[in-house]
Amino acid sequence: MKKILIALAASMLGAACSGPKSQPCEGEVNLLPASAFDTVLDGKAVSLHTLRNENGMTAQITGFGARVVALWVPDAEGGFRDVVWGYESIADYLAADDKFSGPVVGRYGNRIGKGRFELDGKEYALTINDGENHLHGGSDGFWNKVWDVRPFETPDGEQAVALSYVSPDGEEGYPGTLSIEAVYTLTRDNALKIEYRARTDAPTVVNPTSHNYFNLHGSTSGSTNSHVLTIHADRFTPTDEGLIPTGELAPVAGTPLDFTSPVAIGERIESDFAPMIPARGYDHNWVLNKDGNEMSLAAEVYEPATGIVMKVLTDQPALQFYSGNFMDGTGTGKRGDRHDYRTGIALETQNYPDAPNHADFPSAVLRPGEEYTHTCVYAFEVRKPGAEE
């Protein structure tokens, strides 16, 4: 009966609009058709999978790069907004200039300086794809692979999908054959939970993360400078001009990187603070206020115009916040939205960038017989305009 009610609610949400399919009515959940993603890449089938809960929140996920394609969440007026960047077809993803819209990136998310690290006395050279550095797993990383997909329902009745990929020894320069799984669960309390697990047959390094671009206006209908951000971190990792950590852990107090209290992203984004100049704004790693790997609240984002609140929880030690400083409007996504300057933010739960080259950073090494685990939760709420935080 519950499944029938969910299906009926979804059909009602999609039936109210008589306009073009790519232009939803205000507040309507307008799903992308699975047929737009049905293809074969590298001999493997690509598909699109839709997850729903009883509240009408909806996520669409494809096996190409284990990407989140759409994420419809409730707003303060009783409607729904699609709060992630994405494209309307697999052809659009393949043609896009920005390859990091929504996928799982890895093996190592973020940067490794000069694409080199030493492990057990041996030096490894990775693909260089970001100046003189290695970024997000290289030029053919997890984001460019077709993952195997297994939809299922949790024991609690929540819709989920498990995506898995086997990265062969030597791929992008990484040692060891790595088997990784990313499980997306749409919870009944309006959260998208991502759980990673990985094993290896030889010592390697691993740090996958989700690289969604969020806009709580609803896709790219407004600048993210108006979003009010809190990050529960007293320190960050300063970087050189190539955005590689120097090894220092510096306090955020008294700097534009202090989000320990809620601040609009645009309020200090044009600061001449030296660590922000190479990044043209915010593109930094915050060291979360926590000990160990317990789940904790890492960040909170609030958009006053829509009332949407997104909370980011994780068991990881750090969070990368990127404010869309290199977006230039040349890309066009769902519903014809232009990917303009600072119309999407990334909040990536992670280990520190370049951790394999810093003995004082948390270890990124995974060895045979061990299991890498990582949980990230993007939880959504609604705050009425004028309500107390």
Score class of each variant (00 low, 15 high):
244 I>Q: 00
183 V>L: 09
389 E>M: 14
339 H>T: 10
144 N>W: 11
18 S>Q: 13
130 D>L: 11
344 G>Y: 04
53 N>P: 11
126 L>R: 01
37 F>G: 00
345 I>Y: 05
76 A>V: 12
82 D>Q: 13
379 A>Y: 06
241 E>H: 13
30 N>W: 09
228 V>H: 06
141 G>M: 11
81 R>F: 06
80 F>K: 00
367 R>Q: 14
97 D>C: 15
199 R>Q: 14
112 I>W: 02
205 V>N: 02
348 E>Y: 00
21 K>C: 09
347 L>Y: 04
220 T>C: 11
365 V>G: 04
87 Y>D: 07
226 S>K: 11
72 W>F: 13
185 T>F: 01
94 L>V: 15
265 I>E: 05
222 G>L: 08
200 T>L: 08
339 H>P: 08
57 M>R: 01
260 T>F: 04
363 S>I: 04
288 L>D: 02
32 L>M: 12
373 T>K: 13
362 P>F: 03
226 S>H: 11
205 V>H: 01
86 G>Q: 01
251 P>I: 11
177 T>R: 13
348 E>S: 02
121 G>T: 06
27 G>T: 10
127 T>G: 10
63 G>A: 07
155 P>A: 13
289 N>P: 01
234 D>W: 03
231 I>A: 03
74 P>V: 15
41 L>R: 14
292 G>M: 08
260 T>G: 08
335 R>V: 05
115 G>C: 07
385 P>E: 10
282 Y>I: 07
232 H>P: 06
332 T>C: 09
259 F>M: 03
366 L>P: 00
185 T>I: 11
30 N>I: 06
350 Q>E: 03
255 T>C: 12
78 G>N: 09
314 T>R: 01
62 T>H: 09
163 L>G: 02
84 V>H: 00
57 M>T: 02
262 P>I: 09
325 N>V: 05
347 L>K: 01
333 G>P: 05
226 S>N: 15
22 S>G: 09
200 T>W: 06
366 L>G: 03
71 L>A: 11
170 G>M: 08
